[in-house]
């Protein structure tokens, strides 16, 4: 991009996703999370720590709200004032929703967070100057800032513990923003493997760390463009469309009998994560 293209056809470099003119091809990574299966056990979160070199911040910093859990499990209660939570709790794994029209992307002054052709909301640590505007504009608050220099902080990665660090993932220093990447390091490996073999990534060939760990297989990850992928079929079965800010099924009278929904669809970020509502037996 030179100065002239900057002024002439800047829009070619900046798509507002989801777009019709340049649809994602051949990959659009997306997720489906079945909240009826999710037991809230936190295995996904720990797996994320292991895979993505997340620092353990310790009690003091956690108390200050500086935890770095890219994947957090939220626990909600029924809010009808019952004495006992006799229909249990509701767990929600919340991580970056990889929005197609991500509020974080447009506001970053240096373009450190932007959209990949695969539909992942990427974060370039080297480019980040730490203005934190992205986090300020994130409706889900799933972006985590390095308030401290964790690699040099005592007891974050003391000797030996640092040998566990995943060499495929950068260890972030102070002053940069980070968040869930859909385990892009795994995606990249799978894509490269597929490319050298002259094919596309097969469904199930790449798993995110959280998905791989999840004991109840509540998390499905895959290529939404591939009509045979599990994630695509799940989205289709739930009649959730990526580029809608309100789903047709929800506009029907009496609502829908399907469980699929996306959080804050009405804000038009077009998130890439579809949740499936928790079900509770009505006979008991």
């Amino acid at each position: 991009m030179s100065i002239s293209t900057l002024f002439e056809n800047y829009s070619e470099y900046r798509h507002i996703h989801p777009v019709d003119d340049v649809p994602h091809n051949p990959y659009k990574w997306a997720m489906a999370i079945d909240l009826d299966a999710c037991s809230g056990c936190n295995a996904c979160s720990v797996a994320c720590y292991a895979e993505n070199n997340l620092p353990v911040v310790g009690r003091e910093k956690f108390a200050h709200g500086q935890a770095m859990h890219w994947m957090r499990i939220e626990r909600y209660w029924d809010e009808d004032g019952r004495e006992f939570p006799d229909q249990g709790a509701r767990f929600l794994p919340m991580m970056c929703q990889q929005c197609e029209a991500a509020p974080c992307e447009t506001v970053c002054p240096v373009g450190a967070t932007n959209h990949t052709p695969d539909g992942i909301n990427s974060q370039i640590y080297n480019r980040c100057i730490g203005s934190r505007y992205c986090s300020a504009n994130c409706p889900y608050k799933v972006r985590y800032f390095n308030w401290w220099d964790y690699p040099t902080t005592d007891n974050v990665w003391p000797a030996e513990m640092n040998q566990q660090l995943n060499p495929d993932v950068t260890v972030r220093g102070k002053g940069v923003m980070e968040k869930c990447t859909f385990c892009i390091q795994r995606v990249t490996v799978a894509k490269n493997d597929a490319k050298t073999q002259g094919r596309l990534v097969r469904d199930g060939e790449v798993q995110t760390a959280c998905q791989q760990a999840c004991p109840t297989s509540a998390i499905t990850f895959g290529n939404l463009v591939d009509p045979n992928s599990t994630v695509h079929r799940k989205w289709q079965a739930q009649q959730v469309e990526l580029d809608k800010d309100e789903q047709t099924k929800d506009m029907a009278e009496g609502g829908s009998e399907l469980r699929g929904y996306r959080i804050y669809e009405q804000l038009r970020p077009f998130p890439s994560v579809m949740y499936m509502e928790r079900v509770r037996e009505s006979a008991i």
Binding site: L35, E74, R75, Y76, W77, E79, Q87, A89, R90, F91, L92, T230, R233, K234, A237, Q238, E257, L258, R259, Y261, I263, Y275, M276, E277, R278, V279, R280, E281, S282, A283
Partner: peptide, 25 residues
Amino acid sequence: VGGRQMGQKIAPKLPSDKVNLSGEI
């Protein structure tokens, strides 16, 4: 605010007689 959703649709739930699971993958 603890485990409250403040009236938003974040983690909703459906009673089993209002849901159709037959077509699910």
